[in-house]
Design a protein around this nucleic acid. Structure first.
Lengths: 364, 364
DNA sequence: TAGGCATATGAATCACTTC
DNA sequence: CGAAGTGATTCATATGCCT
């Protein structure tokens, strides 16, 4: 029989109505692909803040209490981050969102615990609440931190999907979305159910960028379940942790009503490296390119002849398409597939075009 | 005779060629109106980086940016922040700029020392360096922290100036400026004098927003003196602290050449308001168009399905709305916004109509 | 002179697999 | 473990040369 500390299976696609840290402690180590966390940051919110002796932290009134409150918040932050680190897979990644009230403390803790920050992302609010008193700049953004498990750790980043999503330009670290409102905003008796419900578009981009279909996404501060709703829609598994019964009920109803995209709609742009590799020699073997053929660069500055084994000969040097490409340019490296061209009926074309033809012909 | 520790008068409009902390220690308490600090970021760069064309990226490799550990960096940060706090007037304010490498640690230290964060400001770079390897999001912003001396402390905020500067809209917490280049960038023998020179426009806005003419602005990491040059133009006094003789000489020459500026000329300094750009993927993310939806051209000759990342799938090809539109027509290019249509309740409409709806809903 | 084309470059924690 | 091989990867500006 499994113990509470090491469940044999993950409670997939379910809400755990428990305290954040103790619920995470019950999950198995290295079992989660991605954590998205929207921790509380109201320093006056005593509910989450307790002194080491368990006594309650009172409202902030003076400098001493302020320090006390920061210390308590740091302790709380490190407690949940430590568990997050334990249950994440080595190739998993962490997202945290916050504002200037808490994000600096959280970010420092993330670094101190050994996470490696990959980006900080700015959510620019298209329609922020104005600063009514005119005493500061309109607080028009929130900050997200994206981190891997360590400096050398691998992580998922769907570069091609992000570039496509952004009209063929690299996705930047500043994202613009409207705040959550309209029919998306959960309401009860005309009042919003949760004060800081995040827009689904934000979670959509997070998951599309840094998870794969079938991955497990955990949200330790589930609230009204934006993470779960988007995960379900995008074909990711989700686990939510939330203590408040009111939020749990709202989240469960919302997720039940969410419709998953069917498999064809989940389709995204694929990274070239996910395609099967084709050796240059294969093109020679199959006769798509004859041994002895002459390749040049796009500007015909260099020309090379193809050996029977797929090697190139250029200016007395022989080697792979990449090696020779790098050598003639004096460059540290070179992608021979795009550097070398062949004489096609309709002009000079990169040999990568031959590879694409080969792939199309041989793929089912 | 005055001692070094307590000079009777401030060394106004001068550069102190000394170590940052010891120079601050020699300044009298509560004597500075505003501190703008651009400390080392502790970038922790690895090996060399080359652009896709093989050229080498000139990185920040200076010794002044190297620290042994986070702990060492924290010690350094708290040392200069403590002195900053001592010499600031009770109604003064502090600005610090940084990136995700250091800003979280700096922000936590700012809070720990009793400063009260008023805003965090995002400098959105109009022309950031791309992520050449496609491994992360383009690091397209830096973060500034603006803080007063304490929760109850007063501070200067020129609300009207900011609103006027922003076409009668409240100034937001995200500012867009180009990086420092062109004739503004200080060069010697064709090479940049300082690797991280900040744009003057950034300092203009900082000083215009949070200081008054005649105020004393201190920059403990003066570099090539952007703070001094802008302060002189805006009629503020300045004090710079910089250890490197090369930077000091460049800064002094630059400030000597700077001319005081009429405030009305400032408006021309502002980056032209770029039209909001909406990527097709945004419509998918925000749910205005569902993944899996089918688009056709106006005459329904071709139909394509929308992928989760905003890619189109049509006749076995995937790509952006523009690429696929061009491909099916055999055209060199295509405006996908007008070519592709969706089925609206009242008939076929170009997807550009959705973009207009999005803009109307999100722009003020 | 204006315009087109090529080149240079900016605070960057910038690859992965096989042997 | 390291070394070697394969091959994936860039956007906005500024400057300079050529026509």
């Amino acid at each position: 029989m499994r113990t509470a500390a090491e469940p044999a299976v993950l409670p997939l696609d379910a809400i755990l109505m428990q305290d954040c840290v103790s619920a995470m402690k019950a999950l198995p180590a290295a079992s989660i692909d991605c954590i998205f966390a929207d921790p509380p940051y109201n320093l006056q919110l005593g509910g989450d803040l307790n002194r080491p002796d368990g006594s309650h932290v009172d409202a902030v009134t003076d400098d001493w209490d302020k320090f006390d409150s920061f210390t308590a918040y740091d302790r709380f932050t490190r407690a949940w981050l430590k568990e997050a680190r334990r249950i994440l897979k080595p190739n998993g990644s962490l997202w945290v969102i916050g504002s200037y009230h808490n994000i600096f403390r959280v970010g420092a803790a993330v670094q101190d615990l050994g996470f490696w920050i990959l980006n900080d992302i700015v959510w620019r609010k298209a329609n922020p609440m104005p600063n009514f008193k005119g005493t500061r700049f309109t607080n028009a953004h929130e900050t997200l931190i994206w981190a891997s498990m360590g400096e050398k750790a691998r992580y998922t980043f769907n570069y091609r999907s992000m570039k496509t999503l952004n009209d063929e330009l690299q996705m930047r670290s500043d994202w613009e979305f409207p705040i959550c409102g309209g029919p998306e905003r959960l309401k009860q008796d005309g009042h919003k159910v949760h004060p800081t419900q995040k827009p689904e578009a934000l979670l959509y981009r997070v998951m599309l960028a840094t998870t794969q279909p079938g991955d497990v996404v955990l949200d330790p501060f589930f609230g009204t379940g934006t993470t779960g709703a988007v995960a379900k829609r995008l074909g990711r598994h989700w686990i939510g942790i939330e203590r408040e019964p009111v939020y749990v009920a709202a989240a469960q109803a919302r997720i039940d009503a969410a419709l998953p995209l069917d498999e064809s709609a989940l389709r995204t742009m694929q990274a070239p490296k996910s395609l099967p590799r084709v050796a240059f020699g294969t093109l020679v073997e199959t006769g798509m390119l004859a041994a002895g053929a002459v390749l040049t660069d796009a500007k015909r500055r260099w020309s090379a002849s193809v050996g029977a084994d797929g090697s190139l000969l250029c200016e007395g040097q022989t080697g792979s398409i990449h090696k020779i490409g790098a050598a003639v340019q004096g460059a540290p490296s070179c992608n021979g597939w795009s550097f070398w061209h062949y004489e096609a009926p309709d002009g000079l074309k990169p040999i990568d075009a031959l590879r694409q033809t080969y792939l199309l012909a041989t793929q089912p």
